[in-house]
């Protein structure tokens, strides 16, 4: 029974999918809709999913693709890697000591402000602990692009965190 297998595979990922959806949409209602739509789409397309391949990458990709075609998604993407390179390079490399002092709230704030292609790749890599291969599957990009985008995303994260410290209440 495919439906039973689907539940076994998909339901344990519920929290993660919601978290990822919320990070992408930045809106509780939109995230809920996105998760529901993802599950519905995944269930419909489950017959096309090849057992033995990476289910997690498969369903994350469905969620991301669903997000990309949503209202918020259409507005927020369409970033070329060259453009992102420009965004990332506008920030100088901060001192390691500042990063160490970054608290959870600050990182969350920075992640929220980041362009979605950076935000999502950081979440997939650090929160979901996906391999480059999995990330490549979710984002439908080559592994080389995963590595370069991840590099830029981290660079941008460092830059934004440094900005927080500089403009923060402590006046660092």
């Amino acid at each position: 029974m495919p439906a039973a297998n689907f539940e076994e595979l998909a339901l344990p990922l519920f929290d993660q999918l919601y978290n990822f959806a919320r990070w992408l949409t930045q809106d509780a209602t939109e995230a809920e809709d996105l998760v529901q739509e993802t599950y519905a789409k995944a269930l419909r397309g489950f017959s096309g999913f090849q057992l033995g391949t990476n289910f997690r990458a498969w369903i994350f990709r469905i969620l991301r693709n669903t997000f990309l075609t949503s209202r918020t998604g259409l507005k927020s993407t369409a970033f070329e890697d060259e453009e992102m390179e420009a965004i990332a390079s506008t920030h100088p490399t901060p001192e390691a000591v500042l990063i160490q002092q970054a608290d959870r709230e600050m990182v969350q704030q920075v992640l929220t402000e980041m362009a979605i292609p950076f935000r999502e790749i950081l979440l997939l890599c650090e929160v979901e602990e996906m391999s480059y291969e999995e990330i490549a599957q979710v984002l439908a990009i080559p592994i080389g692009t995963v590595m370069s985008r991840l590099y830029r995303a981290r660079k941008a994260l460092r830059g934004l965190l440094l900005d927080k410290f500089k403009g923060g209440p402590n006046g660092m």
């Binding site: 978290n19 995230a31 998760v35 390691a96 970054a102 992640l111 979440l123 650090e126 929160v127």
Partner: peptide, 21 residues
């Protein structure tokens, strides 16, 4: 440099687990 990257990873991993359905 490596330590900073590891700390960044950890920071994002902690901060990223933010929303509960």
């Amino acid at each position: 440099d490596a330590l900073e990257r590891v700390q960044m990873k950890r920071a994002v991993a902690v901060a990223g687990k933010r929303y509960q359905p």
